[in-house]
Structure formats: C-alpha cells, structure tokens
C-alpha cells in the first residue's frame, strides 16, 4: 500500500511533518508558515487595478505591499499540494455545499455562498487585526512562545466554538 494514496494520515504524523517543514522553511527561507498576509497582498493587487493611486498611498499597503512574494507562492502551493494529495487518494471531488451544512442547515447553494462570504469577510478583517491566522499565530507564533500569539490562538477558538455552536446548536 502506497502511503501517498491513503485518504488520511494520522493527525499526529501530519502535525509532526508540518513542524519539521516549519523548521526547514526557517533554515532555508528564514520564514515561518502563515497564510493570511497573502490574502491582504492579493486585495491590494486587485484594488490596484481600479485605483492605483489610492493603494499606493494606503498606510497598510505600504507595510504589506501588494506583491508576489514567498508567502504568496506558499498559498498557491497549498492549493496545488492539496489537489495532488486528493487526486492520489481518489478523494478529489467537486463539492458545492459541505456535507454537514447540507444535512443540518440547508441545501441551498445561495445561502451557503452568502454565509461563507460573510464568514470570509469577518475572518479577513480579524486575521489582519490580530496580525495572523491559525498557522501564522496558531502554529508558528505559539511555537516561538509569543504571548500575543497564544492569546490570539485561544481567541480564534473561543470565537470559532461560539459561532459554530450558534449555527448548529449545542
């Protein structure tokens, strides 16, 4: 049995390998895994198409420049890597509505789409406000023993658990 064709690996094995990957990226690229900054860069790239001057003068985009960098390529890589993994195990499937949502909430794509977009907007604002996401703060920041990352990670889960229980009931 080829391990790469297995549908799932033990979460502990996956976690240990992500940790090792984090060490390798630190050594070779002097960077840690994180994803949310790349979304902010993308927002700047898109907005530049409509109003170049405004983006160039924006204080935030002066700090987080709308350019393709290591972290941006990392997110592109995540899409490709997940595709390869799903294809190898035969798990790849075009899913319009997640199973749990469909059976417990609604089978309307429109509703799922609106809620997902609302969630995405909220998450996007929160990620940049807190300065990181589940990987940037939750794994890389906590592993560097940053107090702010530990606080952020706990808040991610408090907010996440509260909203999940509100949506699905306790």
């Amino acid at each position: 049995m080829n391990v790469f064709r297995l549908e799932m690996w033990s979460p502990y094995v996956v976690g240990i390998l992500i940790g090792l990957l984090n060490i390798v990226t630190l050594i070779i690229s002097d960077k840690l895994l994180g994803a949310s900054t790349s979304f902010a860069r993308t927002s700047g790239m898109v907005r530049k198409l409509f109003n170049r001057e405004k983006v160039e003068k924006n204080e935030y985009y002066l700090k987080v420049a709308p350019v393709i960098d290591w972290g941006w390529m990392l997110v592109v890589g995540i899409i490709i890597g997940a595709f390869i993994s799903a294809k190898l195990s035969g798990a790849f499937e075009v899913i319009v509505i997640p199973n749990m949502w469909q059976t417990e909430i609604s089978s309307s794509f429109f509703i799922r789409f609106i809620i997902a977009m609302f969630g995405g907007i909220t998450l996007g604002i929160g990620a940049r406000w807190a300065g990181g996401c589940t990987s940037g703060h939750g794994i890389s920041g906590t592993a560097q023993l940053s107090i702010l990352s530990w606080v952020a990670a706990v808040c991610f889960f408090i907010g996440g658990i509260a909203s999940a229980l509100l949506i699905y009931g306790i």
Partner: peptide, 21 residues
C-alpha cells in the same frame, strides 16, 4: 489586537468553516 482581532477571526472561522491556510 490579539483579543479583538482574534475573536472576530474566530467568528469568521466558525461561519466560513475554513481558515486562510
């Protein structure tokens, strides 16, 4: 930043069901 941004992120996390990575 960590508390307010983190809680807002969390609400989005539970509503969307995915995080940026």
């Amino acid at each position: 930043n960590s508390i307010l941004g983190g809680l807002l992120f969390g609400v989005g996390f539970g509503t969307l069901g995915y995080c940026p990575g």
